[in-house]
Amino acid sequence: MWDWAFTIDILPVLARAAVITVQATAIGFVIAALLGLVLASIRLSSPAAGLVVAILVELVRSTPLLIQIFFLFFVLPKVGIVLDAFTAGVLAIGLHYAAYCSEVYRAGFENVPRGQWEASIALNLSPWTTFKDIILPQALPPVVPALGNYLIALFKETPLLSAIAVVELMQRAKIIGSETFRYTEPVTLVGLFFLVMSLLSAGLVRVLDGWLSRRYG
């Protein structure tokens, strides 16, 4: 049932595809983390801008990532922006998770006591200094674990890129399957890879969480 020789054969090929998966994860998460912070900051700045951002976030979270990937990949060329599959896909993933991350940051901001804003005003700090030196350093550490969980979620969703033929792990496994008519080993290996990586990172996040709450809690 399980062919070990075949397994050894396809391992290096899958390993190379795993590099693409990791790259997509890293770039996608950088976009998500930065853009999410920007969105959450806009929400702080004014109620009207906040409502616009809130609606955008709701729109992004209410529609499937797969459709968003298709949308960027197929629709952007119509308006003259031609992106290769990897770029379009990673961008879609980054935007999608930016919506989730912005909610995480927002919770972080809300947990900073009002007195911190007031003390900053009393010291005549500028809004920018207040945000950068006083609020952000207090809002960020507690939300790092939540961001970590979204990093893992994002990582697990990268197989969606296979739908626009980015040759990451899942696509490679499917290609191997269609060429050899053996799906068991490649698909199972991909599953195991994700399982092991997620469990490991979830463990890391838990350790980080404990450390942070001891340090800042």
């Binding site: 911190q116 010291l123 350093p137």
Partner: peptide, 21 residues
């Protein structure tokens, strides 16, 4: 309720605004 900045030392609290403002 004091409203000290919890992520800065006593000294850090006292120099933040003089430096930046």
């Amino acid at each position: 309720s004091f409203n000290l900045f919890p992520h800065m030392t006593a000294l850090g609290n006292c120099i933040e605004a003089p430096i930046t403002v």
